[in-house]
């Protein structure tokens, strides 16, 4: 279980820019085995929040605990999937997948075996010896997912993992992620700026608003599981349309209020 209580963060003033209140009193509880999506416009601090949970960013006030232990840095219980894939261009797909295992000192034969197992899971069997530069974006992110799963974390932290992919590839990967998640039932925190993606994947959708970044509300998604085999039905359902429309309404509100207040909308 992840508990975030009263977390605030201010980025100090830089040059002429005033200090920015990036996050204000964020409270959030994520249960074990839950798939939580965090939805929000650009600049609402959702990536900052995820990096804090990952132990990659610091905060000023409040506390984040994983299973009761305060987060003080990266840990073996959490693994991250990055928007920009973050694959080492000089290492083969297999070596990239085994990177987390290599850092833990797993012997070569075992990490090879484990990497190949996960590459099969994400549909990259036969590509083990390729370099990332020889793969398409979708395939590269499959490697990113396999690398995170390879260290068998309790919690997967996914930072807009499909944001850099084209629509068709994204839909395929959403289905595969659902399939994998329904098999492994890990706790997932998934950042996105797409309402459809947030609703399709999540058990709950946490809506964030910018300046200061805070959790505006949390929507329960009552769509049945497993969803992987029924994506088309789900997306065609009235329930799905209602929830996404409601979320979009709120997101649009965030932008229009800002315009009317004479402020630039977030880029």
């Amino acid at each position: 279980m992840i508990e975030i209580s009263g977390v605030s963060k201010t980025f100090p003033a830089r040059g002429k820019d005033a200090p920015v209140l990036a996050l204000k009193d964020v409270d959030l509880r994520i249960e074990d085995g839950e798939f939580l999506t965090i939805l929000g416009p650009s600049g609402c601090g959702k990536t900052t929040l995820l990096r804090m949970i990952a132990g990659l960013a610091e905060w000023d006030k409040g506390e984040i605990t994983v299973n009761g232990t305060p987060v003080r840095g990266p840990g073996p219980d959490r693994a991250m999937v990055f928007q920009a894939f973050a694959l080492m261009p000089w290492a083969t797909v297999r070596d990239n997948t085994a990177f987390g295992l290599e850092l833990r000192g797993v012997p070569k034969a075992q990490r090879r075996e484990r990497a190949d197992e996960l590459l099969t899971l994400v549909g990259l069997k036969g590509f083990e010896n390729r370099l990332p530069g020889q793969l398409s974006g979708g395939m590269q992110q499959r490697v990113g997912l396999a690398r995170a799963l390879a260290v068998d974390p309790e919690i997967l932290l996914m930072d807009e993992p499909f944001g850099a992919l084209d629509e068709q590839t994204r839909r395929l990967l959403q289905e595969e992620l659902l399939l994998i998640w329904e098999k492994t039932r890990k706790t997932v925190i998934f950042i996105t700026h797409s309402m459809e993606e947030a609703v399709l994947l999540g058990d709950r959708v946490a809506l964030m608003s910018p300046r200061p970044g805070r959790i505006l509300n949390i929507t329960q998604v009552p769509l049945p599981r497993p969803r992987a085999a029924a994506v088309d039905q789900i997306e065609g359902s009235a329930e799905f349309a209602k929830i996404t429309a409601n979320l979009w309404g709120q997101l649009r509100e965030m932008q229009t209020i800002r315009v009317h207040a004479g402020e630039e909308p977030a880029a």
Binding site: G75, F82, A86, F99
Partner: peptide, 19 residues
Amino acid sequence: NLIEMATSFGATEREIWVK
């Protein structure tokens, strides 16, 4: 991004240099 990735998987500064 690679440095952040390595850090998130628990790499030490020396490992970040070497790897």
